[in-house]
Design a protein around this nucleic acid. Structure first.
Lengths: 215, 215
DNA sequence: GGAGTAACCTACCGAGACGTAAGTTACTCA
DNA sequence: TGAGTAACTTACGTCTCGGTAGGTTACTCC
């Protein structure tokens, strides 16, 4: 019945990763089962183990590949053009990835076994947000920033884009990716450009004493 | 040996939720086991089921309570003062929550059983980002915004704060929550204040044709 | 002090998962 | 054509977990 074709090792590996990506995307790491992945690939369990060793190995392989394609897509636009174009280009590239590879994005966003949550995207920050920092370095070097604040901005910008990506992926809402990118880029860009020389010096209202948790 | 005291139902319920919050925070929903929670509470499994019915019920109870406390903390500062103060106050309140209740924050950010990921924070967006929108409505009503863009900004702002919270919770990095709040608030505020009248009208480079995935 | 009730426990079931041992099929190439 | 190897299976072991049935302990209040 089933047109069971025999694949070569690299082909099978490729196919398994694609199936696994889809399954991990909808179920999350813990709930996904190797058996289900094998079934959807039209293959039996030991094949999966032969290729990836363990469930964690399979997941890691999928995440790594996805991370690579995401970085590859973002790196190009962020490396060329005027600063503003580079920024907007990067945001657009990120959101385009969300659109083109929703399963991949879901896998990156969902809980990982390597614990500590969001490890995937944190690594994307490492790979790209540094470069984001570089882009801005040229633009606001004039304002003697506290270097310890840099990761704050990098995280803020990435979080901004990521959350919008998630919102978009979840809902649709009739907003195009290009439009969303424009708005997000405008927000981030204008925010960075008009930062006060030293936000730390601004006056603030006193912090209310935090009431600790019981226990 | 163990000073097993007998607690009243409400007391036990409270205690179980606290223990569960901690366990869910470190393990995530799927990996956490009722048995482990019961053990840490110094109680046997059926007790947990008597109080919450199911694992999902317990998790939902924890999430709901955490959501309530988060909203309660953010609502106050966002409701009083000058616009800029309200904004910064809300950001600070959010990050203070991250600091004071790291387990609660972890539970809210981690994968939920209710699927579709990040349901928790999405609801926080619903509860607070709307208000964020209100705050800004007063400030940039002058610029006839496309109403469809509103959720984009709401999501961007919340994502910004959330990601910084996550970064902070993960690392420490010797940056105080107050400082982080200042920077993040400055970024968001300045971004919103200096938005071009209509970002959609700005020229952009052409989008590169997306290469689809195989399959 | 004894009955009634609220809090709690031991022991178990069944399902489903990861991972493996050992054997089988089909393809290749001398 | 036949041996060797790469791709693949069936079947199982073992463990953990969610959830429940039925009984036991301690506290309260008449």
């Amino acid at each position: 019945m089933k047109s069971k074709k025999r694949l070569s090792a690299p082909e099978r590996r490729q196919q398994l990763m694609e199936v696994a990506r889809a399954v991990f995307a909808v179920s999350g790491y813990e709930s996904a089962s190797i058996e289900e992945i094998a079934r959807q690939a039209g293959v039996s369990k030991p094949i999966v183990y032969e290729h990836f060793g363990s469930k964690e190995g399979l997941h890691a392989a999928v995440v790594d590949r996805e991370l690579d394609t995401l970085v590859a897509r973002v790196i190009k636009p962020i490396s060329e053009g005027a600063p503003r174009e580079r920024f907007e280009g990067a945001v657009l590239a990120f959101l385009a990835y969300v659109k083109d590879e929703p399963d991949g994005f879901a896998v990156l966003t969902r809980d990982s076994p390597t614990a500590h949550g969001r490890r995937g995207l944190t690594r994307v920050i490492g790979a790209t947000a540094e470069r984001v920092g570089d882009v801005f370095a040229a633009s606001f070097k004039h304002a003697g920033f506290n270097p310890r604040a840099a990761p704050i901005y990098a995280n803020a910008l990435v979080g901004m884009v990521t959350q919008v990506g998630q919102w978009w992926a979840a809902g649709g809402h009739g907003v195009s990716i290009e439009l969303a990118a424009k708005h997000v880029a405008a927000l981030g860009w204008m925010g960075m450009r008009h930062l006060p020389k030293d936000p730390e010096m601004l006056p603030t209202k006193k912090v209310k004493a935090a009431r600790g948790s019981a226990r």
